[in-house]
Amino acid sequence: MSTDATRADLSPDLAEALQRAAGARHLVVASDYDGTLAPFVDDPTKAVPIEGALDVLAELAALPETTVALLSGRNREGLAGVSGASAPIVLVGSHGSEWEGGFEQPLDPEAEALLARLHEAFDEIVDRTPGAHVESKPTAAVLHVRPVEDPAERERAMAEAMAGPATFDGVFVTEGKNVVEIAVREASKGAAIERLVEQTGAEVALFLGDDVTDERGFARLRPEDIGVKVGDGETAAGYRVADIPAVVDLLRELARLRAAH
């Protein structure tokens, strides 16, 4: 899409917010991955960014005093592999708990035992739900039901997860679109954004996300920050764009404005 068309597609309020972000002394641009830069697919290993997404992120990351980060529920290694992103783009996995160099501290034996119990409970659900699978993370177990063909079976499996393992003492639950992640250590994209802002001293942070898991990021933004919801649904974000191509258009316009400063 042309730059002129991009400008025309931005709401006046969002266009004004981008102007403000572009003029910040230091800017953090953080984005969710699945559903924000890459379409959802049944095989998560094939969820690649749409054309232009990685290029514009790299363009922004190359600008002075501009920190660009991908914040994902995926583990960091998997995020790097599927996205193709690398330094200077910052990769943060496992909903904000996994940074370069791994996790800040290993799990204690009690947490390891709880994680094993979560896997057992999820495995029982998967055994009676063809198409479902469990993803293992260092601090969490994740139930995926997107590949399940019968919508009623998807809902049933999600309900069982929320009524069973999600109620275990000491767990932290993140329910998304066709996914339930249960962790034994608390993490959030909101805390990750705050950490990026603290590390850089950013005047403005812009965060883009589409899922209910991203609402924790939007909820913890400062008044001067900019939250952009992708797609429909209730949100704490102050702004909204329609879809993934609109995200790329927004980022292109931000890169143009930032470069002009």
Rank of each mutant, 00 (worst) to 15 (best):
Q19Y: 00
S86A: 15
G233M: 08
L18Y: 07
D32L: 06
V241M: 09
A5L: 14
A255W: 10
Q105A: 15
E194A: 15
G52Q: 04
I244C: 10
V56Q: 03
Q105K: 15
T139P: 00
G73W: 12
G201S: 07
A58T: 11
P109I: 13
L18M: 14
E100W: 11
A61N: 01
A163V: 00
P12I: 07
G176I: 00
L91G: 13
L143R: 10
I50Y: 03
A163M: 02
R76T: 06
E120W: 02
G96W: 07
Q105T: 14
H133F: 15
V134M: 05
A47C: 09
R258A: 03
R216I: 00
D225P: 07
A30Q: 10
H261P: 00
P138M: 03
A38M: 07
D249P: 02
L79K: 02
V241C: 06
D169C: 04
R7M: 11
S2I: 02
V134L: 11
E194Q: 15
H26K: 13
S136Y: 01
T66R: 03
E51Y: 02
R156F: 01
L206D: 01
V82Q: 03
P39S: 11
D243P: 11
E135K: 09
E155W: 00
K229I: 09
V180I: 13
D43F: 08
V212W: 08
E149H: 10
A152G: 02
L37H: 06
A24E: 02
D210H: 08
G102E: 12
D249Y: 00
A30S: 10
A61D: 00
L250A: 06
A166R: 01
F40M: 12
E104Q: 14
A53T: 12
E16D: 15
S94A: 14
A166T: 01
R222C: 12
L63H: 03
D249G: 15
D32P: 08
A22N: 05
E51S: 14
G96T: 09
E104I: 11
A242N: 12
S94F: 10
D169I: 03
A15M: 03
E110C: 01
D34P: 11
A187G: 14
L114N: 05
V247P: 06
E149I: 07
L257V: 08
G81Y: 02
A21I: 09
A255R: 10
R252C: 12
S136T: 13
D42F: 09
Y239F: 15
K46I: 00
A255S: 15
L63I: 01
A53Y: 10
A17W: 05
P106T: 12
P130W: 13
D210I: 03
A17N: 09
G201I: 10
D13L: 12
Q105N: 06
G78C: 02
A53L: 09
D169H: 13
R156W: 01
F172Y: 15
A166Q: 00
G52E: 03
N75K: 06
E16R: 15
A152W: 04
A47M: 07
P64H: 04
A85R: 02
D108K: 13
A140C: 11
R195I: 07
